[in-house]
Amino acid sequence: MNVPAARPLVEVQDVSKRFTPHVSIGERIAAMLGSPVETRTVHAVDNVSFAIRKGEVLGLVGESGCGKSTLGRVVAGIHPPSEGRASIEGVAVMGEGRTPLKTTTRIQMVFQDPFASLDPRVRIGDTIGEGPLAHGLVAKADVQAYVARWLTAVGLPAEAAGRFPHQFSGGQRQRVAIARALAMQPDVLVCDEPVASLDVSIQAQIINLFLKLRRELDLTMLFISHDLGVVRHICDRVAIMYLGRIVELGAAADIFERPRHPYTRALLDSVPKLVTASDELVTFKPIQGELPSPLSPPPGCHFHLRCPHARERCRVEVPRLEGDPQPAACHYPLAP
């Protein structure tokens, strides 16, 4: 769709993110006295690397708990990574130190729930204008016209600026959230399930809005979703995540037509399809079992417990994400 630039715009290198629950004073004293205190660390993201070229839309797909939202937040500079780094044109998204801060406004985020992501007591014109004002993207005198421009860009009337979030429907609120992100004039948009909470007909409107913005603004996007149909529709490339790791990465058409990783195959087989022939027999091939807990992921390949092709090696050795142009983290990838 776009001519790829030489150097990727966004680079994510060996990023891991672990969450360790807060240990209370009592527990700390108990630990000092020699009692075994369980520290339960969640490995939300486990050594993930990928790159996004300018103008490209990369889909990040996986089931709940696979770490896709956490990874998105690391890329957007909301969570500092435990290891590794996310950068935009070579500049790290997060600073260093004990309480690292985001260093750039070039990456902005759109969240899933537009009912939770907008302040109910702030007029949406102020919500959209606050960031650009604070960062000097617009002078105070011009902010009204600036907000109006972005409202129009997302298909809302300019007078909407004076209204509060509750005066809008879900789809309109998501447009406001997108306008807020775009008003910062980012190069990269991280979208976390931006259409998941919308009705089908509204979802179509927002998907069309993304397609239009992409054409007009040459936006680069990390598009996080569990909905394979939506991802296939708007993404150039797709990364499939399972339990904190990327298990397969490739062009959208290839991932959907010729998956190499058994998990990708199984995921595709689980999606219900529209039945339009009366004699069509609907059969799923559900994946056996459930997602293991990220508190204690299985050794070796994380998918081996549910994989129909698992062998001895899969239980001990972690597969690397290998292969070109469609790398898959599998010792025995599927034949194309």
Binding site: A204, L211, H233
Partner: peptide, 23 residues
């Protein structure tokens, strides 16, 4: 018809979806 048309599976990837106007 409109509901069906607005499904991503009904269009070619990257193509605008046929949307129902209004709400």
């Amino acid at each position: 018809r409109g509901l069906l048309n607005s499904l991503p599976s009904m269009a070619r990837p990257g193509q605008d979806l046929v949307q129902i106007p209004g709400s």
